[in-house]
Design a protein around this nucleic acid. Structure first.
Length: 151
DNA sequence: GCCAACGTTGGC
DNA sequence: GCCAACGTTGGC
C-alpha cells in the first residue's frame, strides 16, 4: 500500500498504532481492498513520490473494507460528490502498525532482484496505490531485509 | 519540474 | 461506444 510520506508516513502510523487508510479513488485499488483483504492480512507500507521511494514497513489489516467517509465531506481533500452515503463508491480499511523494516528497501534495489521482477509494483506504468503481493515475493523481500544492500 | 503512462470525462 | 482532451500518479 502506497502513501506519500509528506502526507502520511510510516512514522505517522507508528504513532497512531491503528488508523484508517483513506483516499483510495481508483476502482482497481478499491476492488483489491474490498475483495482481497481480510482482518489479519499483512501488508507492506510503501513510501511513494519522495526522495527514496520504497518499502519501509509492515502493517496488518485491522478492519476490513468499509465506506470511506472522507468521500462524503466537502472539506476533505478526497471529497467525491458522486459517492452517495446510501451507496458508497469508495472504501477504506483500518490498518495497524506492526514494525518498520530493519532497513528500507528502495524501489531501485528491489528492481535488481530477478525473483521480484514479476512483482506488480515493478511493472512499468504501474500507478495503483494498492496491489497484491504474492507469498513468494513477500518472503523474498523479508529475507532481503537481513542482507547487505545490493548496489 | 518533466513527462510517460494511465484513468476519467464528455461530446458526438 | 469511440476517442480526444484533460487530470493524476509517481519515478526521475
Amino acid at each position: 500500500m502506497k502513501s506519500e510520506p509528506d502526507v502520511y508516513s510510516i512514522d505517522h502510523l507508528k504513532k497512531a498504532k491503528t488508523d484508517y487508510w483513506d483516499g483510495i479513488r481508483n476502482y482497481q485499488a478499491r476492488n483489491f481492498i474490498r475483495d482481497e483483504m481480510d482482518k489479519g492480512d499483512l501488508a507492506f507500507f510503501y513510501h511513494s513520490n519522495c526522495e527514496e521511494p520504497g518499502i519501509v514497513g509492515i502493517m496488518t489489516v485491522h478492519k476490513p473494507a468499509y465506506p470511506d467517509f472522507t468521500a462524503f465531506d466537502p472539506d476533505e481533500k478526497y471529497f467525491d460528490p458522486k459517492s452517495d452515503p446510501e451507496n458508497p463508491r469508495w472504501l477504506m480499511v483500518d490498518v495497524r502498525y506492526v514494525r518498520k523494516l530493519k532497513r528500507p528497501l528502495s524501489l531501485k534495489e528491489l528492481k535488481l532482484y530477478k525473483p521480484l521482477e514479476t512483482m506488480r509494483l515493478l511493472q512499468r506504468g504501474n500507478r495503483l496505490s494498492v496491489m497484491p503481493v504474492t507469498e513468494k515475493e513477500w518472503n523474498y523481500i523479508l529475507e532481503l531485509e537481513n542482507e547487505v544492500p545490493k548496489k
